[in-house]
């Protein structure tokens, strides 16, 4: 088939492919943040965790030759940062927002420092699964060449849904996040649950970071993240603290993020930077629209104290 005959399809295909690619880190980071927030704490430091995960994942993949070991290492690095956040916030009169922001700086700094020697070498990248095998068109194949972590992310969203709604531990987590008094009266250890939830959030954010450096073609550089770790916090609010919604929201943000490159791909080069700003504009618009004073937040964890 002639390549030009699918010209009208190029743009949606490019956006679809881009959405899948760009959304993957969002899925991991936002679901990680969701778990942390469900315990009643906000970890704003996931941007730092993301960068650290990207660096650690790339480094371990390069040294061991296995990208999956890299993913695991990224998760563990994130877990360590989650533990750090969890422990620091457990000290009296320490504010989780301030700790989060300082962890952004610390994580990014550490990643840059240890990542210096990783800019040159080439590490093995994560495998991708070809969903476009049925088509002979290279554009379709390229768009549907989906990284394995994306599927893990989809499974994760459903697994977290089941965890929060159908397991005893999930209910315990929600209890701690919604009412500290209730949790104490039931004999739950509030601090332990919160620290574990922050560690789980860090683990997932680290994995999200490893996607940035280990997905095709795979490279480590200091400009790898474009604020996904921070926007995930907004995503969680937009998703109303529901994991399936977070998956959808991540795809939406991914699509918006793919808009600029996709338009460039079909030859629309004007306003490139404006289109690249689409996810951020979308973030602002959605936050304004969805945090209206009149809309009740039934699933918002009470301990976050979002109602003034």
């Amino acid at each position: 088939m002639d390549v030009t005959s699918i010209g009208w399809l190029t743009l949606p295909l490019a956006i679809l492919g881009g959405a899948i690619r760009v959304s993957t880190p969002f899925i991991f980071v936002s679901i990680g943040e969701l778990i942390t927030e469900k315990s009643g704490r906000i970890n704003l430091g996931l941007e730092g965790t993301l960068m650290l995960g990207a660096m650690a994942g790339y480094g371990v993949s390069y040294l061991s030759g296995s990208p999956w070991l890299g993913v695991l290492a990224a998760g563990l690095a994130g877990t360590t940062f989650g533990l750090l956040h969890g422990l620091l916030c457990s000290v009296k009169r320490v504010n989780d927002t301030a700790i989060g922001i300082s962890l952004i700086v610390l994580g990014t700094g550490l990643a840059f420092f240890f990542g210096k020697p990783l800019i040159e070498p080439k590490a093995p990248a994560l495998p991708s699964i070809s969903l476009g095998f049925w088509s002979s068109m290279p554009q379709v194949r390229a768009a549907l060449d989906v990284n394995a972590l994306f599927f893990v992310g989809i499974l994760l969203a459903f697994a977290v849904y089941v965890f929060l709604n159908r397991t005893g531990w999930g209910l315990m987590l929600r209890t701690v996040g919604d009412s500290e008094d209730a949790a104490r009266a039931l004999g739950f250890s509030v601090l332990r649950v919160r620290i574990l939830a922050t560690m789980a959030g860090g683990f997932l954010a680290g994995i999200g970071g490893s996607f940035l450096s280990l997905s095709y073609p795979g490279s480590w550089s200091e400009g790898l993240s474009s604020g996904q770790g921070i926007m995930a916090v907004a995503l969680v609010i937009f998703a109303r603290w529901r994991s399936i919604n977070a998956l959808g929201a991540s795809l939406l943000f991914g699509g918006a993020g793919a808009l600029g490159p996709a338009l460039q791909g079909v030859g629309v080069t004007g306003y490139y930077y404006l289109f690249n700003a689409a996810p951020y504009i979308l973030t602002l618009a959605i936050m304004v629209a969805s945090t209206s004073r009149a809309a009740p937040f039934a699933d918002a964890p009470g301990e976050l104290k979002l109602h003034r």
Binding site: G168, L171, M172, R174, T175, D178, S179, D181, A182, A185, L186, A298, D299, A300, P301, G302
Partner: peptide, 17 residues
Amino acid sequence: HFTLVPSMTVAQNLVVS
């Protein structure tokens, strides 16, 4: 000051307790 979890249903509260 009640110690039920506000965002959960009565059934969920019973189970978690």
